[in-house]
Design a protein around this nucleic acid. Structure first.
Length: 584
DNA sequence: GTAGGGTTAG
């Protein structure tokens, strides 16, 4: 898509006098319609309010329309706002600004830029706010490179010294990773307020320069809650959980965003337990969560396998009339799928009014991990049919792993080829891993090895490990030896690879080699790795299991059950690869 | 009406 600069940023006639619009008389602020709009929290009420505005002809009045549009946008009724906006015969700059703000706030930069074109064609003069929205729109489509042009335009209009414009430019440059430009504009500012300094903080945080951010933060004469939150968020991004936590403890008035930022900081840095605990602290502090908090905490539950808490949160969201948006939707789908309930995950998925790539990826991944390979692929095709949403690398990892687990060799090959050809996604380590797994499980070990050797990047231990498991199933010692040779370099201390080879030699009655490999392990001092562990929650209690340990109070019963299962599986004709004795 | 927090990853 190309947008001609000339069409987007038209040149104003310089003959027009530049004037700042006068503020609308405040006498209307007590008008019942304005009052109703300010209080309005239900989108379905908008239509009747608009009807009463038409009756009194106030739907043409700039002050009323400004309030009406702002209300629509606050309630996410952006299309309805636009519809009523087009009905206004002669909108002034306040009305345009409200509409622009709504469009930019709902990430519709192209519509915003078009509206700006209309505005200039109607000879409505922009204000500083108009340009600040324009800068935001440009930030949302950096590829067009319009920011500089807008900057030039602002300068010509004499707004360049306005605080709000300079603030916008600091933000604009830092959003494009041009931190030096941000600093230049910031240093040139003759006056600074809390907001401009906080935007600069955000710039440093985006650039990962938390030392400079801290210096500015310490120097700031006033700090708002937003300044604190920006700092905490910056440390979260920089993976400095400790600094984030200590700043959070220190901060005086924690609001909803502060708590959510801290929870997300823990979650993003894999401290899921702390994330859930902090959520508890938030509730104890009497701060109510919103959709953003919920999405974050539910995601932490998914990682912990805390189904019970996750379900409670879902319940809470339903009771409080929260919007089931794409963020919370994806988190819920993932949480239910990972905690064993693909049915509930699907219920959430079908309930979603709007689905983005995250939602589709979560449900495809969920089906894949539940072994529903065919359903996962069906879902993938439905996503393609729905249009507008294009698969990414994450999608293909799920799709390929679904093929691997269901044994769809031909389909997997096709998907892999299509990913490269139709979607220009270059295969990454994970994709190769799935393909090697797929081919290996199907016994196509030579093809798998050829694929590994064709890789542009150096294959990692996961790849060789997948190949080795394939060799183990089909007793292909030749390729297994090649894989183990690589694995010994990549993970020299992982006993599993040596043991796999030992078992294979033993199965082939090659006891000489068994002794050699065992000797190698001893000689290299290969230790058994730390235990892998897993959690599962039942009736609100999280049970932790680690390989080769018997700490769980019901270990004996569990092992008895497993042995029983082992026997039943053997009876059913399934030869189990696992040796339980090695686990105990 | 300018600043801060969100989801998927064998």
């Amino acid at each position: 898509m190309t947008v001609k600069l000339r069409n987007v940023i038209p040149i104003f006639s310089s003959k027009q006098p530049l004037q700042t619009p006068k503020t609308v008389s405040p006498t209307y602020s007590n008008h019942p319609i304005i009052w109703k709009l300010k209080k309005c929290s239900a989108p379905q009420d908008l239509q009747s309010i608009h009807a009463s505005m038409i009756k009194t002809n106030s739907h043409q009045h700039p002050f009323f329309m400004n309030q009406f549009l702002t209300t629509c946008c606050r309630l996410h009724e952006i299309d309805y706002a636009f519809l009523t906006f087009t009905d206004v015969a002669d909108p002034n700059v306040f009305v345009y600004n409200a509409m622009l703000g709504g469009l930019v706030g709902h990430s519709q930069p192209i519509r915003a830029l078009r509206l700006y074109v209309d505005m200039s064609r109607s000879h409505v003069l922009p204000t500083g706010y108009t340009f600040s929205y324009l800068i935001k729109a440009c930030m949302q489509i950096p590829a067009l490179g319009l920011g500089e042009a807008v900057h030039g335009k602002i300068w010509r209009f004499g707004f360049s010294s306005q605080l709000i414009i300079q603030t916008g430019m600091v933000d604009f440059y830092s959003s494009l990773d041009k931190i030096e430009e941000s600093k230049r504009v910031f240093d040139e500012m003759s006056e600074r307020d809390v907001v401009s300094s906080t935007v600069m903080l955000l710039g440093y945080a985006r650039a990962g320069d938390m030392d400079s951010a801290r210096r500015l933060f310490e120097e700031m004469p006033q700090r708002s809650t937003v300044s604190w939150n920006t700092m905490i968020g910056g440390y979260a991004r920089a993976r400095d959980v400790e600094s984030a936590a200590s700043l959070f403890d220190e901060m005086p008035n924690k609001d909803l965003v502060s708590w959510t930022t801290m929870i997300s900081c823990y979650s993003q840095n894999k401290h899921f337990k702390e994330a859930v605990e902090t959520f508890g602290g938030m509730k104890a502090a009497g701060v109510s969560p919103d959709e953003v908090t919920m999405a974050t905490v539910i995601s932490a539950c998914a990682h912990l396998g805390a189904l019970e808490l996750g379900r409670e949160l879902h319940q809470y969201a339903l009771l409080n009339g929260f919007d089931l948006d794409v963020y919370m939707g994806s988190a819920l789908i993932d949480m239910y799928a990972k905690s064993g309930s693909i049915e509930r995950a699907l219920v959430v998925f079908y309930k979603l009014a709007e689905k983005n790539l995250f939602c589709w990826n979560s449900v495809i991944e969920g089906l894949a991990i539940h072994g529903h390979g065919k359903e996962a692929l069906d879902m993938f095709h439905r996503m393609k049919k729905a249009g507008r949403i294009f698969p990414n690398r994450v999608t293909f990892v799920s799709v390929l792993s679904a093929c691997a687990h269901a044994g769809f060799v031909e389909e997997g090959r096709r998907m892999f080829a299509s990913m490269i050809r139709d979607y220009s996604i270059s295969p990454e380590m994970e994709h190769y891993g799935c393909m090697v797994d797929l081919l290996g499980r199907a016994g196509l070990l030579q093809e798998a090895l050829d694929l590994v050797r064709s890789m542009v990047m150096e294959p990692n231990a996961v790849i060789w490990g997948a190949l080795l498991s394939g060799c183990k199933i089909y007793g292909n010692l030749e390729i297994a030896e090649a894989a183990v040779e690589k694995l010994m370099v990549l993970e020299p201390n992982n006993s599993a690879h040596y043991m796999l080879l030992v078992n294979m030699y033993a199965e082939a009655n090659r006891w000489g080699e068994v002794a050699i490999v065992r000797g190698m392990m001893k000689g290299r001092g290969v230790q058994k790795r730390g235990p892998g562990c897993s959690w599962i929650e039942m009736d609100g209690v999280v049970h932790e299991f680690a390989a080769s340990e018997m700490f769980h109070p019901s270990s004996n019963e569990i092992c008895l059950l497993l042995f029983g299962l082992d026997g039943q599986l053997k009876l059913a004709g399934y030869s189990l690869e696992l040796d339980f004795n090695s686990l105990l």
